[in-house]
Design a protein around this nucleic acid. Structure first.
Length: 553
RNA sequence: GGCCCCAUCGUCUAGGCAGGUCUAGGACACCGGGUUUUCAACCCGGCAACAGGGGUUCGAAUCCCCUUGGGGCUACCA
């Protein structure tokens, strides 16, 4: 049976790279009717937070990725938090120590740094120099007493090359001595990734490890460790996927958002600006940043937590590139879109299909068709995918997605009932994101006297030419109508245009701006009918009053 | 610096492992036109690639080598 796992380190939100890894493992398990395990690799006490673990799980659920074993669901190989498996790791470390396959180490971080610098200066790479005689338990005690850090290193067999047979890359060979002895147990008693991962993959009977290419260099060490620990037990098959790169070059990383924000802030960063940003940087229960903190951020010396980044971006008025899964959901992308798009980053079914529902993805997924070369995360294509998915998603499902979106965005449209929302959805055929739908419909639930007029729209449609005059005529016709049905509104506007010998746009656009404040809204007949006669007339009157006399020639 | 991976339109890719059917196919983007009550959507058309150099072969996008370029790793992070 195929068993795969996703093993995130809970250091923050789930980002697209992690989501893709999770998805590929999940697809492969589902495709083979196997099991998919979620394992939390929280062995870095400095960086991991419990909220991040929860957030990662929420994001996975949002994507529709469920796990057969893991936090929340349990399973035969638990616990699934590495921080709760320390006795297991200790046992294996003990075993290696006893068999002289691992040894204690007492170097400080500074000493190691110095060694590394030295190696850099020379021509070779850095590999830890193994001591002639392995320190014993007594030595470790003594070192501890002296306050030196105590770690354990694995003695990587140095006599022959290590060959990794990778599912996507084929045979990758590492020269004997190339892989240096690496730390398996940190001085705080926690295992390192390279160790815990091997032990857990064995105990959880993982058959396929699908992960990013950045792990390829870890594989020979892990493989050697596996042999030392588990002898001839067959190791999992490794599949190292291509890396997802960003258009700014390099691996797509969470740092892009702070970077983008910093770049837009820098040119404006005088004292008042920094103070203003700082004063408005509080998030929920988190206190506002100080001006100094903001200044240091702009200067590149520090990076505040992500919520602050989002808050500042909001205040400054920039849209940051989406990196985390939550960013995409906030921007109005469907989970179906994300899954589909992510699946095609480094994989293709080979027959030209692109827009695929989940079931099709599962049926077609194949490790043999993973791409070797890196791929760039193309937001344009993502948008196109979202448009397609919105089109092919049924109104009921879309309604659920939309409601979740609106809630998240705090949209006034939240006041709408289901029938109205459904109507909005069907009228918005061709919307590219849920945000589009929201944006085009918000006007419905804004108070008549709180319309924000878009300057450009007002100038172009109302002030230039005889927009205001036309609007006044429209107002009177609307007031005189017997039945305020959508059909009647359409008939009235069309015949008015015909009567005045102008295109419908000349009639419709001033009306649109009057009731929405902008030229972007639902189709005009729907807009007017949904708003109702009273609201429409009030808004027209307000508009007329506001802009009369300001018309340009 | 060392080690490892990769290389087809601007981007994602098909084709490569089993060399000829590839004057290299699709999608997105872009450009032009159409439709139109806004934004979209939609329809039609167009531009556009085998990184370079050597081999092997009757024949190479496809196999081999070198160069160049890109990426990854080089932590008591995962």
């Amino acid at each position: 049976m195929v068993v795969t796992r996703f093993a995130p380190s809970p250091t923050g939100y789930l980002h697209v790279g992690g989501a893709r890894t999770a998805l590929f493992n999940w697809l492969w398990a589902r495709r083979n009717r196997g099991r998919f395990i979620l394992r939390i690799e929280d062995t870095d006490r400095k960086r991991n937070t419990p909220t991040a673990a929860k957030q990662v799980m929420d994001d996975l659920r949002w994507l529709g990725i469920d796990w057969d074993e893991g936090p929340g669901v349990g399973g035969p190989s638990g616990p699934y938090l590495q921080s709760e498996r320390r006795d297991i790791y200790d046992r294996y470390v003990r075993q290696l120590l006893d068999e002289q396959k691992a040894y204690y180490c007492f170097d400080t971080a500074d000493e190691l740094d110095a060694l590394r610098k030295q190696a850099q200066a020379g021509k070779g790479g850095f590999a830890y120099r193994r001591p002639e005689r392995f320190p014993q338990a007594g030595d470790a005690e003594k070192a501890r007493a002296e306050g030196r850090p105590v770690t354990v290193r694995f003695a990587v067999p140095q006599d022959e090359p290590i060959v990794v047979n990778d599912v996507v890359r084929g045979r990758v060979s590492f020269a004997a001595g190339e892989v240096g002895d690496f730390i398996i147990l940190k001085s705080d008693g926690f295992p390192t990734y390279n160790f815990a991962c091997v032990v857990d993959d064995y105990m959880m009977k993982i058959t396929h490890v699908i992960r990013g290419q950045e792990h390829l260099m870890n594989t020979p060490g892990q493989q050697a460790l596996w042999r030392a620990l588990f002898g001839d037990a067959p190791p999992p098959k490794y599949a190292h996927m291509s890396v997802t790169v960003s258009d700014s070059g390099g691996k797509l990383s969470k740092r892009e958002r702070p970077k983008a924000l910093r770049e837009t802030m820098r040119p404006r960063a005088n004292k008042e600006f920094i103070d203003a940003v700082a004063a408005n940087s509080a998030v929920d229960t988190w206190p506002a940043l100080t001006s100094l903190q903001v200044k240091e951020f702009v200067g590149g010396q520090s990076v505040p937590d992500m919520p602050y980044i989002d808050r500042m971006a909001d205040f400054v008025g920039v849209a940051l590139p989406e990196i985390n899964i939550v960013d995409f959901s906030k921007s109005g992308y469907l989970p179906e879109t994300m899954v589909n798009f992510l699946a095609l980053l480094g994989w293709s079914p080979g027959d030209g299909r692109e827009i695929m529902p989940l079931g099709e993805l599962i049926d077609s997924f194949d490790l043999a068709r993973l791409t070797k070369s890196n791929s760039l995360f193309d937001r344009h294509k993502l948008l196109a995918f979202n448009t397609e998915h919105i089109k092919m998603t049924g109104p009921e499902t879309l309604l659920e997605h939309l409601k979740a979106y609106l809630k998240n965005a705090g949209s006034p449209l939240l006041a709408a009932d289901d029938p109205l929302l459904l109507r909005v959805i069907t009228t918005c055929e061709g919307a590219r994101t849920l945000a589009d739908i929201d944006r085009k419909s918000r006007f419905i639930f804004i108070d008549d006297d709180k319309i924000e007029y878009d300057v450009k729209a007002v100038n172009k449609v109302l002030l230039k030419g005889d927009g205001l005059a036309m609007l006044a005529v429209v107002r009177d016709r609307l007031a005189a109508m017997e039945h305020f049905s959508q059909e009647a509104i359409e008939d009235m506007l069309r015949s008015l245009a015909e009567e005045k010998q102008v295109g419908l746009g000349k009639v419709a656009q001033p009306l649109r701006v009057a009731i929405c404040g902008t030229t972007i809204s639902l189709p005009i007949f729907d807009s007017v009918q949904i708003l109702g006669r009273e609201g429409t007339l009030t808004r027209i009157d307000n508009t007329l009053k506001k802009f009369e006399g300001t018309a340009k020639s």
